[in-house]
Design a protein around this nucleic acid. Structure first.
Lengths: 330, 330
DNA sequence: GCGCTTAGTGGTAACGTTTCCACAAAAATT
DNA sequence: AATTTTTGTGGAAACGTTACCACTAAGCGC
């Protein structure tokens, strides 16, 4: 029923191989190429990508597995990845794991069945440990989260540096009792915690880090509990944009003013962080660059499979706003 | 190199057809089924989806074409669609058009080439007009935007009602000079404009609607220009969540207080709309429902291709906040 | 004018599945 | 006991492409 390459060949008066060549690469006379194009238009032929993929063994598909596309960081990175992919004539299959290792495993086998050309993956720590075991038969680039050794191509933020920048910023504004709220399931959370603790220690300050499950609600609850304590910190360092909404909400609910009662510094420069008074101090991640760079690494890996593994570490930009205004001198 | 169904058959000591049946439906003795499963485990066999799709003529793939996944409305709807799809054993191909009809056309042919099982699409007005012409050979469900007649299955918000609700709300709070800012490229913008104008007229008030290109920046510029006018409106009705950031930013830049100098009411109940003082009054769209319902319509259409077209119109919920606080009586 | 490359074309065998058909054996029905 | 139905299995033909090979005709260097 649906028209195939054979029909086009018949209409154009040439062989199927010639049609195939005319549509793709290969030596075809200008005359025949036009006949074929005319036949394609006349018949309304649309190549069947499943057949093409099966025969050519090239799926032109890249997988993208992230925690949750609703996390603004992944939204932006995902969009950048998709743009780069479509520009290169590739499709993207997007999967949301909600940081659930079982779903990560599920989607990994899906990627195998799809025979993806490559994979861009933001794994949980649990999966990261298990990743070396089951050898994938396509290249993989990790984003946002890094394995221990340089096993895989990776592109991520310099998380320790970024945390340290925030700590330094807070300390320079007079804050000393600074708490930190981090995502429990990612290496990112751990790295940001480490950077935070190291920077605090370097200043001779004691830090307190708390880990929470990766949702705004969990962050809100954790922040509310923390801020209700009589010896609550003066400032909170918040590990991502999702958490930020929860923390600000908790502060509002408790009637705490920012920054007078509680200062806030976090990650991810979402548009709204500028709009919520008095503006939130954040580390801006180069999200487009991360997505684009991940695709670049992937393409390079495909071209030179045996090249040494590369880790692209990008610096965040600190955007200082009112949420970390200087403490009044005592 | 990569193991195929033939290898599994050899290892299991049965024919390929038996393996195929054992893996899918079909009568297979329990004994043989186990042998096959053992062989699958032993060989590490992963079915090749391209081959399966080609042979079975079922791609189990649904297309999702939206303006921009970074628009929080589409982010949420997209996530709901993906969840429903994966639950049903289907994959999703996501495309961002940036409201560009050329890219819409491009992606539509891509969907044809992919032989998608069905399509969920938020088209621009331009494409909507052209849509009936080129018959697609798969069912399509429109989201967020509706065609003129009931040509296609559709799920969207009751936009006129929602706009009217906001107008009523504003009027009841004492506002009379209310402007409206709408997206230029979608029927959604038009419908919300119509609802706004109708509600204004019903109250004996003159409305002024302005259309802007679909980006936060464009909204910011338009709002800034409008609010700089000496006879600026008392309140602004803002057509979507992307625009809201722009409008609030413009107000801040101009030093206008919300709601004293300019009241704001909009669409999309994003977490941050609660946090930006004094809280933004918005229409909350049932985003998960929209995504899920779109998939439901699609599946029903697949089951009964000739059933009459259906249009699911959902009501928004008005969340009143400080940005539309009552005007002091004069 | 002779070999030699090259451009252009057609025939056909894959790619890895599913599905149809045939058939035997077992089970159910008469 | 004879027939019919069901269950389980294998063989082989698709699905719609691309890629390999063979071949002709034309161009080129000498």
């Amino acid at each position: 029923m649906t028209v195939n390459i054979k029909d086009v060949a018949r209409v154009a008066g040439v062989s199927v191989s010639t049609v195939s060549r005319a549509l793709g690469e290969g030596p075809v006379s200008a005359e025949v190429r036009e006949q074929v194009q005319a036949a394609v238009r006349a018949t309304g032929y649309k190549p069947n990508l499943s057949a093409r993929r099966l025969r050519s063994q090239r799926t032109q598909t890249i997988g993208l597995i992230v925690a949750d596309i609703r996390n603004p960081f992944f939204t932006a990175v995902g969009r950048a990845v998709e743009d780069a992919a479509y520009r290169a004539g590739m499709r993207v299959i997007l999967c949301n794991t909600d940081e659930d290792p079982a779903r990560e495993a599920l989607y990994l086998t899906l990627m195998q069945e799809e025979r993806v050309t490559g994979l861009i993956f933001a794994p949980t720590r649990a999966t990261l440990d298990r990743l070396q075991a089951d050898a994938l038969d396509f290249p993989m680039v990790l984003i946002d989260r890094a394995g221990p050794g340089g096993q895989f191509d990776t592109v991520l933020l310099d998380n320790r540096e970024a945390s340290a920048t925030l700590v330094d910023h807070l300390v320079s504004r007079g804050y000393t009792r600074i708490g930190g709220l981090f995502g429990a399931t990612s290496t990112t959370g751990v790295e940001r915690r480490d950077g935070y603790l190291a920077a605090m220690a370097a200043r001779g300050l004691a830090g307190e880090a708390r880990f929470v499950p990766p949702s705004a609600e969990a962050a809100e609850n954790a922040a509310a509990a923390w801020l209700r304590q009589p010896d609550r910190p003066q400032a909170l360092l918040v590990s991502n944009g999702l958490f930020l909404t929860g923390v600000v909400k908790a502060a509002r609910t408790l009637g705490l003013r920012i920054p007078q009662d509680i200062a806030v510094a976090g990650f991810d420069n979402e548009p709204w962080t500028e709009l919520v008074e008095p503006g939130l101090t954040v580390i801006e991640q180069p999200v487009e660059t991360i997505g684009r760079e991940a695709m670049t690494l992937l393409f390079q890996r495909l071209r030179t499979p045996d090249a040494p593994t590369r880790k692209v570490v990008l610096s965040g930009r600190c955007v200082a706003r009112g949420s970390t205004a200087a403490l009044p001198r005592t």
